[in-house]
Every structure is written in structure tokens, then in C-alpha cells.
Amino acid sequence: MHEILIEEKILAKNGEIASENRSFFKERKIFAVNIVSSPGAGKTAIIEKTVPLIKDKVNLAVIEGDLATDLDARRLLKFGIPVKQITTGKACHLDAHNISHILPWVLEQKGVSLLIIENVGNMVCPAEYDLGESIRVVVMSVAEGDDKPLKYPAIFSSSDALLLNKIDLLGHTDFDIDKAKENALKINPYLKILETSCRTGEGINEWCAFLEGEMTGAEVKA
């Protein structure tokens, strides 16, 4: 009997490819945002509200991850920006490999400075898969439970910002927004929390300002 010591991260391969993606983005001054949430929290709606506000200021492209269909990509085509749909089949998350395959397409779009990646709607699996993104943003809607951060700690712990979306519905639900923030900060004291509504547009300017601030910050650091 041999005992063979390995001591390696199980997802080391994904981590390596993610690091390559990260270097690719850094060398080309591309800021990559990985947007994660449960299905229906409003990821696509947020992107739809974000694009018109920033597309004249930054050169952006969007990657849409879904199990099936290109419905989300179609929703964004009206803005005349480059959109690429990735269908994962039965895989419940995007991985670094999916993104590395799309990099040649990103290059073809010429001068992209902001790449928005909409992950598959799922609060569990995407948490473990680094894509090589610059920041990870988790979206949670007030139609969900305010205890969600405690139930899905990994995704909140690995994110940089939290968008509390659909705040126009506050008052129609039992969602306690202060409790939700408290729970999220328990999991991750460094989370930047923003409140948004894609129906009324509330908070979208602040979110875009945050995004542009992060992009500038990344440039300064580089």
C-alpha cells in the first residue's frame, strides 16, 4: 500500500485557468465583472439598465451564461453592443474554461474595457468557480428571504458587492432590508451594498458610479 501525499486544491485546474484569464484582462486593461444570483433576482434587468448609462463612456461587451436558450442575449442586442451567449447545457455554473474559450471573441470586439459576465442563475455552484474576474457582484431581490446570506454564505463571502434589487417591492413583502444587510455583512464585512430597482431606476446611477469607480481604481492599481 502506498500513501501518496497530494495536498492540492481540487479546483486547482480551474484556478490556473482563472489566473490566465485574469492576466489576459489585466494586460489588455479589461475590467471583468462576474454577476451572480439566484434565478430571477434581476441580473439581466440590471445589465439592461446599466448599458444605456455607460455605453457612451466605456467600451463594453457582455457574456450571458445560461443552461439553455439565447433569450437573455437577445434582450441586450437592442443596445448595439457585442453580446455573446454561452449555453452550459446541464452545468449549473460558468467555469474559467468557458471564459477562456470566449477570450478570442472579446479581442475581436476591439478595445473592450468593461466585460460584464452574467453567470448562470444559481446561488450555490458559481461560488466555487473563479472566472478570473476583477470583481464579483451578487444580486439578491427583496422578493427573496432576508436570511439568504446566512443560507448561501459561500456566494456572499466570495463577492465584492451586493445589489439589493427590486426595492420598489419593499412594503409588499416581509423582507427586512436592515436585517438583510446585517446578515450579508456578517458573512462578509467588506461587501459594498447598494440598493436598486430596475422598474423605477432607483439606485442605478449609484451602481454605475460604483462600477466606474472600481474600473478607475483598477487602472490606478495596474
Binding site: H2, I6, E7
Partner: peptide
């Protein structure tokens, strides 16, 4: 999320 070791013959 690490693999530590294996035993095999």
C-alpha cells in the same frame, strides 16, 4: 476544498 492524499496499491 483540498485533496490531501490517496492510498493505492
Amino acid at each position: 476544498l483540498d485533496i490531501i492524499s490517496i492510498e493505492a496499491v
